[in-house]
Design a protein around this nucleic acid. Structure first.
Lengths: 339, 339
DNA sequence: TTGTATGCGTTATCAG
DNA sequence: CTGATAACGCATACAA
């Protein structure tokens, strides 16, 4: 079965005693080629398992039909779900996707970027690492005319780039409002790392919901964690420190830290543990296995974020949108009430 | 900043008034090139942000430096963790990785395979879909001399392929032995879909552990599920149906179904619920949030499975192992006791 | 030490 | 309708 001369157009042409160009045209269904010739060529191609060499085509067409994605981590379901949205639409439009993880390491992110640049991807979708401050490795793409769409994690201060983001303000507003409607007066907010702009967007959603509903704000009910478990626990301790100002509800930046919080509160036998109602960003399927599950989840619709990113990117590739005409797209969250 | 003439070797050569080949050699540090010339070329290349075009190199070298991976699903942490093992070693050896999900759909798997074939990957690592019975789309690779390593999910009946597998027999044996050592006499086994060969390997581990320790086997203590929640619950019902033969411990094919089982047993207020000790394959970090967690987990070491797969693949690519000399590598599991 | 020529596999232009 | 030829960007054998 093993064939060592590669099956190329030339090889087919020799077999068929025709020219390479005729074979090429026949396979690409050129109208000028005789039907019978087409049939002969296509049959031979099938029999010999001819597979066009993408590198040759890329070189010729100056187009790779590849979209690059750089993201921090495939263990985070937000990202894997977002890939699903990207893939769907990319495939429909004849693009393949190369995924590269930065593991939240800048050096690795730079390497990934360079690799994708050498591969001459037609466009790039990127969620930057925690430590990305300098963007030279990503700016290269735009300098070569390759569009870049930042999604989720993006350079918040920079307006000169295309962005697709979850509307995390709206999500947090909605969650807080939901708790207010359930008659909670003392709603705590547990934020993420202060460097991440989402932390503040969500805080703004929280505080605006309070304000719009005449619930007084108390700074004792706000704390931050950098995702580290110890850190989360000390934040939670602070939130529940003052017996005069005890929260009855909690909105958390992300479900994993919410679970840590819940676990801690139960471990100390918090008096009103059963009454406390919690909501976090995420909506893990795992929730159904918890004994004291959050009352609701803020679903960030990662598939939709991914889909919006790829749609924008393809418009940029097709020059339906000018690359300099920077876009910002917000994808709404949805509150999912459990049970 | 935006440059529209692409920076190629030719472009550099013109700027430097040298020939393309000198530029090429200078950039590749040929010993025959004058030091000063090298410097000039390399400096210019840096200043103009020259990036070699991978398609051109692939075409020339007949090598893509790309490894393809086809796997069912990125939402399963077994696979994302295995990717980590692959990436590490691939990068070290100058290979990039293209990941493609089949979503357990044969049609999608075929498309992925064809895409990777057109990309002329240098090797393929694949975990087949649930429905893959015919292997023509994967056999193509070997026919073209491109090595294929099956990992985890593989054509069990077929000995003529390279395989890297978790030693799931050993893992299940060890888990069962652990429960026996804790004085359990009635240990139930909840298996996965019967089509998957791992189901039977694990069952064999279970039954051998029983036999080796003179624990009588009872077919009432064995049931199967296809991962569907309803299905899992009815399997569990059967396992716990006979009051004369009530299990006190349970070994499950995978943690998600184990969690469904635990949830069900609690929901019916099973009399000895607190006493039942469970073990599943997986070792999700989520376990720490459960109220009634499994007593232990069978860690399948996916990173190591991935690493073994890529190591074997690279040996095959380098022809250090003959492609026809089919290998089978087993990666041991490890029992992780919780709490 | 540098330059010229060729070819990798494909598409496209133009001539026949 | 078919074929010869050039070009895409790069590496390399060979010539100078």
């Amino acid at each position: 079965m093993m064939n060592n001369t590669p099956v190329t157009l030339k090889f087919l042409a020799e077999k068929l005693k025709m020219s390479v160009s005729t074979v090429s045209k026949a396979l690409n269904n050129y109208p000028t080629i005789n039907e019978y010739t087409k049939q002969r060529v296509q049959e031979m191609a099938r029999d010999l398992h001819f597979t066009p060499n993408k590198s040759a085509i890329n070189l010729k067409e100056k187009k790779s039909h590849i979209i690059g994605i750089i993201l921090p981590n495939l263990l985070d379901h937000f990202f894997t779900r977002s890939i699903y949205g990207v893939e769907q639409f990319a495939t429909q439009n004849g693009y393949n996707v190369i995924i590269s993880q930065s593991h939240d390491d800048l050096e690795k992110e730079i390497q990934s970027a360079n690799m994708l640049l050498r591969s001459r991807v037609d466009g790039l979708i990127v969620a930057i690492s925690k430590h990305t401050q300098d963007f030279a490795h990503l700016d290269q793409f735009e300098n070569m005319g390759i569009p870049v769409v930042y999604y989720t994690r993006n350079p918040s201060f920079n307006l000169s780039c295309h962005k697709v983001l979850g509307n995390t303000f709206q999500g947090c507003y909605q969650a807080t409002k939901f708790l207010i409607d359930r008659r909670h007066k003392k709603i705590a907010y547990l934020g993420g790392p202060k460097m991440i702009n989402f932390t503040h967007d969500r805080f703004n959603g929280y505080i605006n919901a309070l304000k719009d509903n005449q619930i007084p704000f108390s700074s004792e009910l706000v704390a931050y964690t950098d995702f580290d478990k110890e850190n989360t626990i000390s934040a939670i301790k602070n939130l529940f420190a003052n017996p005069e100002n005890m929260p009855t509800a909690l909105v958390a930046f992300k479900e994993p830290i919410l679970f840590d919080a819940i676990k801690y509160l139960r471990s100390i036998n918090h008096p009103n543990f059963d009454k406390i109602e919690c909501i976090g960003f995420g909506n893990t399927s795992f929730i159904s296995y918890l004994d004291s599950p959050p009352i609701a989840s803020i679903e960030e619709n990662p598939e939709s974020v991914g889909e919006n990113a790829i749609k924008l990117l393809i418009q940029l590739i097709n020059k339906e949108i000018d690359i300099q005409h920077y876009q910002k797209i917000m994808v709404d969250c949805k509150l999912i009430v459990h049970g």
